[in-house]
């Protein structure tokens, strides 16, 4: 034991309080932004402009929307979009797997990057790095013989 009990309690109270303040600083602007994005259907409009990305990554254009939602807004929103799409017009199995390969590496990019930024990680490396890594793995996976047409 290197610290007394009151010191430990003090550290717990001050530390957890500042963590929660940091989380609030990120979440309040973020949630307002996400509300704007979903009310004005920004993701739908943006996904139409991003169809060229699908060619590079190797999946069909209809998969852009769920991917974009997951990467920008977070995995819960993305899962919601995917489930909705599955009911209306299911994605092809290949596209589905490729989206998963991308978004399990890289999701909720604004939120997670911002909170890690508050504790002192390098924001550019963790966001750009994850996007590039996810892109590279998806591109490679799409071209593997593992997926038969």
């Amino acid at each position: 034991m290197t610290a007394s009990v009151p010191a430990i309690i003090n550290e717990f109270l001050t530390g957890s309080f500042s963590t929660i303040i940091n989380v609030l600083k990120v979440l309040i602007p973020l949630m307002i932004l996400i509300e704007f994005l979903s009310v004005y259907h920004v993701m739908e409009k943006l996904s139409k402009k991003l169809t060229f990305v699908t060619k590079v990554l190797g999946f069909s254009p209809s998969a852009v929307l769920p991917l974009l939602v997951t990467v920008v807004m977070g995995v819960t929103y993305g899962a919601g979009t995917l489930m909705e799409m599955n009911e209306k017009e299911p994605l092809e199995k290949k596209d589905f797997i490729l989206i998963a390969i991308f978004f399990f590496i890289c999701h909720g990019i604004i939120e997670t990057t911002a909170i890690w930024g508050t504790v002192g990680a390098n924001v550019i490396i963790i966001s750009a790095g994850r996007l590039m890594l996810a892109g590279a793995i998806t591109m490679a996976a799409a071209r593997l013989p593992f997926f038969k047409p």
Partner: peptide
Amino acid sequence: QIIKTGFIKAIKTTLMLM
């Protein structure tokens, strides 16, 4: 309205995270 909804969602998420 959007700002209000977003704000409430943030508070709810933070409470859940706590």
